[in-house]
Design a protein around this nucleic acid. Structure first.
Length: 308
DNA sequence: CAATTAATAT
DNA sequence: AATATTAATT
């Protein structure tokens, strides 16, 4: 199970070429194919994975050769099975009983990519419904012949050019949830990053956000000179940190159920309606069903950080 | 090496 | 304005 990661974030998504696209398969779930090797990289169906000699040497019965029909049948089965059962969090094992919630809210956390080549308001939202790949969103044209250093060859290889991360409300919420779980005192970039379990999210992404978040908390805590009536409206009284008890690490007992932490595809997507979540920055305790702070800004959660 | 913070860059 | 990056410090 756990895999770790000490490593740095790697980019191992995309590259889902146009692995064929005969429109004959209506049941096809493109989403699942992203990142998978294409047909040419896979062992042909008729070829046994284990050579006969090896198989006999280890007393294993060689698998029967499969046909495309077998594959198709298996696909149908899998699809129909998954159709009725919502995906249960597969990657929640990281911390024991941490996020045992299978979750109804299949969260879609989206990354927004700011096209580096452009200025100003140029964030591109990638629709999860489309076969659009992140790389497609970042490349203006597509040379028919991949250059030696073509990013598509091996995105996981050092790809220093990571697109600028946009902290969408979903991502931010995940961040907040994790920090709350850890306790503000224990929440450090690496751990947060791991717990957030967002594909492509780097430690420095988190560190940067965390720094900002802490500044925000600081402001909240010591409002020395009570804020001008003008910036009062956005933030109702939200005691920033665990105020009641001397600060300790309360990693257990989360006041509210965390959304299941599932692997989040780097470019998921959120329907255009996504800005509905009020990002109250209550670090420790929550706001859950109650519509506590409805600061409702249209632009990301920034309204919450903003001083005004 | 990782974390923190402040400063600075894009 | 939001994030990234860097430098200095722990």
């Amino acid at each position: 199970m756990g895999e770790e990661a000490g490593g740095d974030g790697e980019f191992d998504r995309f590259s889902a070429e146009d692995c064929d696209s005969t429109g004959e398969e209506d049941e096809r779930v493109i989403d699942w194919e992203v990142g998978l090797p294409n047909g040419e990289d896979l062992t042909p169906l008729f070829q046994a994975l284990v050579p006969p000699e090896l198989a006999s040497a280890f007393c294993v019965t060689p698998e029967l050769p499969r046909t495309a029909l077998d594959v198709h049948r298996a696909s149908q089965y899998t699809i129909s099975k998954l159709r009725r059962a919502a995906p249960s969090a597969a990657a929640t094992a990281a911390l024991g009983s941490f996020f045992p919630f299978p979750s109804e809210e299949s969260e879609t956390v989206a990354f927004e990519i700011d096209d580096p080549a452009e200025e100003g308001e140029s964030s591109v939202r990638i629709s999860r419904l489309g076969p659009v790949s992140p790389s497609a969103a970042l490349e203006e044209t597509e040379p028919s012949v991949p250059l030696p250093d073509d990013p598509r060859v091996d995105p996981s290889a050092r790809n220093p050019k990571r697109p600028r991360l946009a902290w969408t409300p979903q991502l931010h919420k995940r961040f907040i949830d994790v920090v709350a779980h850890l306790g503000v005192k224990n929440a450090v970039p690496k751990t947060i990053m791991q717990l957030m379990n967002v594909d492509g999210l780097s430690r420095e992404n988190v560190a940067s956000h965390l720094q900002k978040y802490r500044l925000y908390l600081k402001r909240m805590k010591v409002p020395e000179e009570p804020q001008s009536p003008t910036d009062h409206h956005l933030f109702p009284s939200i005691p920033p940190v665990t105020k009641s008890m001397p600060e300790q690490h309360m990693s257990t007992s989360i006041p509210y159920p965390l959304p299941a932490m599932m692997h989040v595809p780097i470019f998921g997507m959120a329907p255009p309606n996504m800005y509905a979540s009020p990002i109250g920055m209550a670090p420790g305790v929550g706001h859950q069903g109650d519509g506590a702070c409805h600061a409702l800004e249209k632009r990301h959660f920034n309204g919450a950080f903003k001083r005004d």
